[in-house]
């Protein structure tokens, strides 16, 4: 019993530890960040990234990969800044349709046995095209309520932290505690045994994709809430950020091994790494490399601990 707990704990401990170390370093470099406003400024752009990371995590939990995450979030941002604020009914309809398309992608990928990377790469051009059609030039206006929610100032902890915790808890309950979540992770772990047990893998995959669509839609809406307007290219970086966030947070590409809380922590760590490097005054030419170095260090750490864990098991 003790052993299994510690394996899960290790999985979560490394991302949490890296976040804590980075946060400590940022506070040391920039004491001003150690305040309500400071924390909000450090983390508020991490909220949409965290949501996109959860979406990517859901897709990865069924052993797929979504390369359209960035363009899809951009598309949602464009819908939010145009239709959702001018004709809310129509806007909601479009977003619901987009989630339905995601579910359908899951169905098509499963039925035709297509590689998800190829399908999502193709879809990324579709989303990018639609986004440009909606907003040929940057603009639009965030709906008032989205802006209000994203700039709320709750007592005790800033909005960015509260939102991150809420996202982590909700995702944890959906993926780790609900029967649907168990099913989805089962598909990633051992598809055949889930099938033999009488479950519909098709439905599970469609549900995972639909849920991912919902989280990605939330990412787009929250992003517009922060930026106040949209741009067809606003979130292109999210594709790689979301994948990196899942992996940093203790997830794996295959096997349905994922951790929602870890994913949110991973997204926060990635955002913080950017600020840390900028506070360090590292030249921009080196920043991408340095960001990569942080990723590699964390992953190496995990590999090391995984190996220790395995050796323990073998004993």
């Amino acid at each position: 019993m003790r052993r299994t707990v510690s394996a899960d704990a290790i999985r979560l401990a490394i991302p949490a530890l890296s976040l804590a170390i980075l946060l400590g370093a940022v506070f040391w470099l920039q004491p001003r960040a150690m305040s309500y406003i400071g924390l909000n400024l450090l983390f508020n752009l991490a909220v949409p990234i965290a949501l996109a990371t959860i979406a990517q995590m859901l897709i990865m939990s069924v052993n797929d990969l979504d390369l359209a995450m960035g363009t899809f979030v951009s598309f949602v941002a464009c819908v939010t800044a145009t239709f959702l604020s001018e004709e809310p009914f129509f806007g909601v309809l479009i977003l619901a349709g987009a989630v339905a398309v995601y579910a359908m992608l899951g169905v098509v990928i499963h039925l035709r046995n297509l590689p998800s990377i190829v399908v999502s790469l193709g879809m990324s051009f579709v989303w990018a095209g639609l986004a440009v059609l909606l907003l040929p030039a940057p603009g639009g206006q965030a709906p008032e309520w989205v802006r209000t929610v994203m700039t709320m100032k709750p007592p005790v902890a800033p909005m960015a932290i509260v939102a991150s915790v809420v996202i982590a808890v909700v995702a944890h309950f959906i993926v780790m505690r609900s029967s649907l979540g168990v099913l989805i992770r089962g598909v990633g772990g051992n598809q055949r045994s889930v099938e033999r047990a009488g479950w519909s893998v098709l439905a599970a995959r469609a549900a995972a994709y639909a849920l991912a669509g919902v989280f990605a839609v939330l990412a787009g809406i929250s992003l517009v809430g922060l930026t106040t307007s949209a741009d067809a290219n606003i979130a292109l970086r999210y594709t790689l950020l979301s994948i990196a966030g899942v992996i940093l947070g203790g997830g794996e590409f295959i096997g349905g091994r994922i951790s929602p809380i870890g994913a949110v922590i991973g997204a926060l760590t990635l955002t913080l790494a950017g600020s840390f490097l900028s506070f360090l005054r590292i030249s921009p030419d080196w920043q991408i490399g340095a960001q990569g170095a942080i990723l590699i260090i964390v992953l190496a750490l995990r590999l090391l601990l995984n190996r220790l864990e395995n050796r323990d098991k073998r004993r």
Binding site: Q30, L42, N44, I234, Y238, S278, F279
Partner: peptide
């Protein structure tokens, strides 16, 4: 990227 520059501006506020 706009999102990255937004983060950069927020860092400048903190600095």
């Amino acid at each position: 990227q706009a999102t990255e520059q937004a983060a950069q501006i927020q860092n400048m506020i903190l600095q």
